[in-house]
Nucleic acid binder design. Structure first.
Lengths: 227, 227
DNA sequence: CTACTTAGTGTTCTAAATACACTATATACC
DNA sequence: GGTATATAGTGTATTTAGAACACTAAGTAG
């Protein structure tokens, strides 16, 4: 049994990280997709990703990709699953530690240095076929987000610091892909004791201003299932 | 960008698989623990595991370890999480794709070839400190099992093909670590339409025989939360 | 035939989920 | 200034699910 340089004495698969970056824009749930600049699948749409570097955890890699491709940091990032079917990458045995991220639309800034890959936001329901097994990663990620928004407070990561109850409900409706009853939503959410009313009201609209609320904790916390 | 032999052109971390193997024995939830035959952590208790081989998925590795160390196949196995803290292995940057398995006690056969590692079943509540970050893996696995038994049918994987409702309830109580009400348990479980009564009754005890039931599906299936 | 052990069975109460429609308050426009 | 319009905000009744709770039934052992 080896003590050092384990990677020279054993077979080591390649390890990449791919990340499904979700945001909400124009009332639709969207995912950030890039066009591959190189073979394999050159030109095809794919999830942003990259190889793990020495001295980097997979989460570090995910954060690096998030900064490079979406120009964003400090957002919600969670490990999803490790995909390692033997035929998933034509270059050989390369596994992908998949992550997903939730980002408010106004925090996404597509840098010029990423321009060759032309990152763009695509509505979930209009996703094209993606390179590798990224199709599976994307649907697994969607399912995870839909599950977790129902028993955690992660909705905070798709909203500005203060928001109206209507905005909050809209996040749920967009992620879950279904309409919810306004009165029941408010009743249920308020009794969870997750958000607190501020003293401000929305302004600028041409309708009645809404009371603004804030999440008390903007860290992930688990609850009983609530939707 | 490379086309072939990606693992020679990039840094690749080492990749191992570790597996938390659960079973129920004497009314207690137990986990299979080995004593490490080699450095690092020689002699220390650890989860069974091993490096991924060429041409093997992480699941293949998990199944191989399960066969080698527990002498078992065809049981419930699920990927848990990928642990890759940079300091988790003193040999260098080596990640672990963690799995867990659920096995009926009578299917576990500790082979002589595994004898040097002296595999043994340890009650969850009496687990010693484990090598590497296996402590974290073990508690994460326990939490996952406790969660999933509440909204899936995985209990089938800890029971013989036919079983009494009392045995079934005992599995839930053992995994969750708490007593459940007999009448409420039966009412709730039967209306889930997951199990069907057979025409047989238990025998051999010195008490009233129990009707035996079978799971209709012995494949994982997800349900609404039910406990 | 009696003691013992586990199997099996219903009802009541409480809490949560669902269905459902109108009034309030701002801006925009005439 | 008054009216149209758009979104905010609010309560009750019904249904469904969860929780609490105690006795009778059917075997074996002695």
């Amino acid at each position: 049994m080896p003590e050092k340089n384990i990677q020279k004495e054993y077979f080591n698969p390649g390890v990449t990280v791919d990340i499904a970056i979700f945001t909400i824009e124009d009332g639709a749930l969207k995912m950030l997709v890039v066009n591959r600049a190189h073979e394999p699948f050159k030109g095809a749409p794919a999830l942003p990703g990259g190889f793990i570097h020495e001295g980097e955890t997979s989460r570090d890699t995910a954060l690096r990709v998030l900064a490079d491709k979406a120009g964003v940091s400090g957002v919600y990032v969670e490990q999803l699953f490790t995909f390692d079917a033997l035929d998933r990458d034509p270059r050989g045995q390369i596994m992908s530690v998949a992550y997903f991220a939730l980002v408010p639309r106004d925090q996404i800034h597509i840098h010029t240095e990423a321009a060759t890959e032309n990152p763009s936001l695509i509505t979930i329901s209009a996703l094209p076929k993606l390179a590798f097994d990224h199709q599976s990663i994307a649907s697994y990620a969607l399912k995870r987000v839909q599950d977790k928004i129902q028993y955690t407070n992660i909705a905070y990561s798709l909203l500005p610091k203060s928001f109206s109850l209507s905005q909050l409900q809209s996040v749920y409706e967009t992620v879950l892909g279904k309409k919810l009853d306004k009165r029941n939503f408010r009743k249920k959410f308020l009794q969870l004791d997750l958000i607190r009313a501020t003293k401000k009201k929305s302004s600028g609209g041409r309708q009645r201003p809404a009371l603004l609320y804030k999440f008390m904790k903007t860290m992930p916390s688990e609850l009983r299932r609530f939707f």
